[in-house]
């Protein structure tokens, strides 16, 4: 796992992908920070963070699009799958590498608040709640993105597919309001990433949501390994 992890992280930073993703996320975030803080002369820092979800939706498909598909296209998977390592450790290496880049980007968004904390007292509970929530949401989305990448040899299809799924998982919450009262609404609300993410933006540490996101990661990492192993039996 360590070898794959190291290679993948290096690959993110020898190509522009890692830098671009981090830079775009921080630029968008910084701009929004500026708009809310200065132009809107508001002191509601957590409000700034609550928009992280949409920025993440933009960069996660780019981070995950080539994780597995590129190996399948360039046949480098022949080196990986004939090496004495398990498929799970290969997938974990790739998942953690994408998560690492995401983690760096999200951790970067704490800097403005750290700067402000020298001059005022931002609500760190809510900021950290947002931070942890975003990381959990990102982890789950990255696991899904890696899985979608394993379904195709085309990076573009993987990226668009992941983007579509991430939108679906957010707007699914709105569907629940239109079918309110039925058990379907309950199920849909339970699945919705947005309704799982929201408590964190209010600084709540919701254990069931934590477990939910971590389960999604585990399930999709597992699906990815099964998908790769199934290629053997084509």
């Amino acid at each position: 796992m360590k070898a794959v992890l190291k290679r993948e992280i290096r690959s993110y930073f020898t190509s522009p992908i890692g830098y671009v993703c981090i830079a775009v996320l921080l630029a968008l975030f910084g701009y929004w920070y500026y708009i809310v803080m200065l132009a809107g002369s508001s002191s509601n820092i957590p409000y700034v963070y609550s928009y992280m979800l949409s920025y993440c939706m933009m960069i996660i498909p780019i981070l995950t699009m080539k994780t597995i598909s590129d190996d399948q296209k360039n046949k480098t998977d022949q080196a990986l799958l004939t090496a004495p390592v398990s498929v799970l450790s290969i997938v974990m290496g790739k998942f953690l590498a994408a998560f690492f880049v995401f983690f760096v980007a999200i951790t970067g968004t704490l800097l403005p608040s750290v700067a402000i904390s020298f001059f005022g007292a931002p609500n760190w509970t809510e900021i950290l709640g947002n931070y942890v929530g975003t990381l959990l949401y990102g982890g789950a989305m990255i696991a899904i993105g890696v899985f979608i990448s394993s379904l195709t040899v085309s990076q573009i299809i993987a990226a668009i597919g992941t983007f579509a799924v991430s939108i679906l998982l957010v707007i699914i919450g709105q569907i629940s309001s239109s079918v309110s009262g039925t058990w379907i609404a309950e199920v849909v609300k339970w699945i919705s990433f947005e309704s799982r993410y929201d408590p964190f933006t209010q600084g709540q540490f919701n254990l069931s949501s934590v477990v939910y996101f971590i389960s999604v990661m585990a399930v999709f990492v597992f699906f990815t390994t099964r998908k790769i192993e199934s290629r053997r039996y084509r």
Binding site: T76, Q78, L80, T82
Partner: peptide
């Protein structure tokens, strides 16, 4: 030790 038909090389390394 396996050398496949297409060497499994990472071109960015």
């Amino acid at each position: 030790g396996y050398l496949p038909e297409l060497p499994p090389l990472y071109l960015d390394m």
